[in-house]
């Protein structure tokens, strides 16, 4: 401090360090307590959000399980959290396997679009799609989740041979998706992301999922 009056005593460096240490200590305690206090609510919020998304993309599902794909082997995920090979299985009220909820993401018009979509292996169809994260242009690109007529394209969509985008109003086959007028790029991005997800997941997944541990059924062990 060049402007300091010469009369003033320079505080010792011990005192400077002590001040900062005390401030850091108090601040650390405060931060840890707020973290501990809010953690249960935050985890519960995240889990609820995920469950709601899974239930939304897989109609008729009332219970979900976390799966993990290791190589070509599917197993229940026992560890907490998730990584890129985590997917979700949905079961109906009787505990029977219904379908998978598959995450996939890729570049959109603005930023990465993260998608969770429901897939029924028996019929080889996509039955629901939820945008988990996107920063598409408000009013245009955000129609990929705000425009019901676009979202409803994914309620009964065949994945074979691949999903294709067509100009709005021209949808004629079960694997076609009506694009959004004025937001073709975002609409195509969603379809591309789902196709990429299919390429990554679908062939490795058993048709009947994993049976619930509580009620073992005859499908157990099927690959």
């Amino acid at each position: 401090m060049t402007t300091q009056k010469p009369a003033e005593q320079e505080p010792s460096s011990t005192r400077l360090i002590a001040t900062l240490a005390i401030a850091g200590l108090i601040s650390g305690v405060a931060i840890v307590s707020i973290y501990e206090a809010t953690l249960p609510t935050i985890t519960a919020n995240k889990a609820r959000e995920l469950r709601e998304a899974v239930f939304k993309v897989l109609p008729g599902v009332s219970k979900m399980e976390k799966y993990q794909l290791e190589g070509n082997q599917l197993r229940f995920r026992t560890e907490t959290g998730k990584d890129e090979n985590t997917l979700y299985g949905g079961y109906n009220q009787q505990g029977e396997f219904v379908g998978y909820a598959l995450p996939s993401s890729g570049p959109g018009f603005q930023d990465t679009i993260g998608i969770l979509y429901g897939y029924i292996p028996i019929t080889r169809k996509v039955v629901g799609m939820e945008i988990l994260e996107s920063r598409e242009t408000p009013g245009l690109g955000d129609k990929i989740y705000k425009d019901l007529s676009f979202v409803s394209n994914f309620y009964d969509l065949s994945i074979d041979p691949t999903i294709v985008t067509v100009k709005k109003g021209l949808k004629s086959a079960t694997n076609e998706v009506d694009a959004i007028t004025g937001a073709t790029i975002s609409a195509k991005a969603v379809v591309r992301i789902i196709n990429e997800g299919n390429a990554r997941w679908v062939e490795k997944l058993p048709t009947h999922g994993l049976a619930l541990q509580e009620q073992p059924t005859q499908q157990e062990g099927e690959k």
Binding site: A30, I34, Y35, A37, T38, I42, N45
Partner: peptide
């Protein structure tokens, strides 16, 4: 940090 976690919760 306090307001960040509170909002998140």
């Amino acid at each position: 940090t306090i307001i960040d976690y509170s909002l998140l919760a």
